[in-house]
Design a protein around this nucleic acid. Structure first.
Length: 259
DNA sequence: CCCTATGTTCCCAA
DNA sequence: CTTGGGAACATAGG
């Protein structure tokens, strides 16, 4: 169930693996994903992340857009094996990229130009501008809901929102209108640190997420609050709380994170 | 049977 | 218009 660090990991590995290769065909097993097989015959220029979306650029061809949603994974295979729940595969001249997705929420789309896609700030870019703080402070929803809004800042999901807020010392239910400038700066620093560390760890494997080559990530060993309800806070020994916000499990330390 | 799940979108009510 | 709640999508696991 990938967020920014997992998608970034896949894109880096994908870029290293398929850049320069020819995409020969797309074989579709799940008609819900896409209706027809396709013969492509285009060379891959590269793969990049945009928010939580994976973009594959083809020379003189469309940009392929893959969104993994909840249970999607990408696996590189060159041993002819077909993993269970494969919805489609991208056949290259040196192997196949399998889109595996048990819950079938993932999507595959295509577009002509990068400019066709909405431009949304990325947490690893220069997003925390004065203009951003002014706009954000004019709103009054919970800071966690705000960080999860992909139209505002693209790539942060439920795990990393919880972790970033813990690292910032800010309560998930704090209203954006009540954030100080210092709070925003701490959010920026925490987002940078947490997301980069998670990328170094090749993501978080809680149940079955793996990278392009089937290896687990290791950021689960660094989680401070997510999934730790009732356990001791590693900073102050308080019991980590879990409450529901917008239908998502929300973990925080009632002592370290002030409302 | 119950509940939960790293995502997104839509409908509805306050 | 904004915000939040709930359901939907479809499946697996505890």
């Amino acid at each position: 169930m990938p967020e920014l660090p997992e998608v970034e990991t896949l894109c880096r590995q994908l870029d290293a693996t398929i850049r320069g290769a020819a995409l020969v065909a797309i074989v579709v097993y799940d008609r819900k994903l896409c209706s027809n097989d396709a013969r492509i015959g285009k060379k891959v220029l590269g793969a990049r992340r945009r928010g939580k979306e994976i973009l594959i650029f083809l020379r003189q061809g469309p940009i392929l857009r893959i969104h993994l949603r909840m249970s999607g994974r990408l696996l590189w295979k060159n041993d002819g094996q077909e993993p269970p729940h494969t919805r489609c595969k991208f056949v290259f001249d040196g192997g196949s990229l399998h889109f595996v997705d048990p819950r079938r929420f993932g999507t595959l789309a295509a577009c002509r130009n990068l400019e066709d896609l909405p431009a949304v700030p990325d947490p690893l870019g220069e997003w925390m501008t004065d203009a951003f703080i002014r706009t954000a402070s004019a709103r009054r929803l919970a800071i966690k809901s705000f960080l999860l809004d992909q139209n505002v800042i693209a790539g942060i999901g439920n795990i990393y929102a919880c972790e970033i807020l813990f690292q910032s010392g800010i309560h998930p239910w704090r209203r954006t209108a009540d954030m100080t400038r210092g709070d925003w700066i701490r959010i920026r620093g925490a987002a940078d640190a947490v997301l980069k560390k998670a990328i170094d760890c090749r993501g978080t494997t809680i149940s079955d997420w793996t990278d392009l080559y089937g290896r687990k990530g290791s950021f689960q060993n660094h989680l401070r609050v997510y999934g730790r309800e009732g356990k001791r806070c590693r900073r102050c020994s308080s019991s980590i709380a879990r409450e529901v916000m917008n239908g998502r499990g929300t973990y925080y330390c009632p002592t370290c994170q002030i409302p």
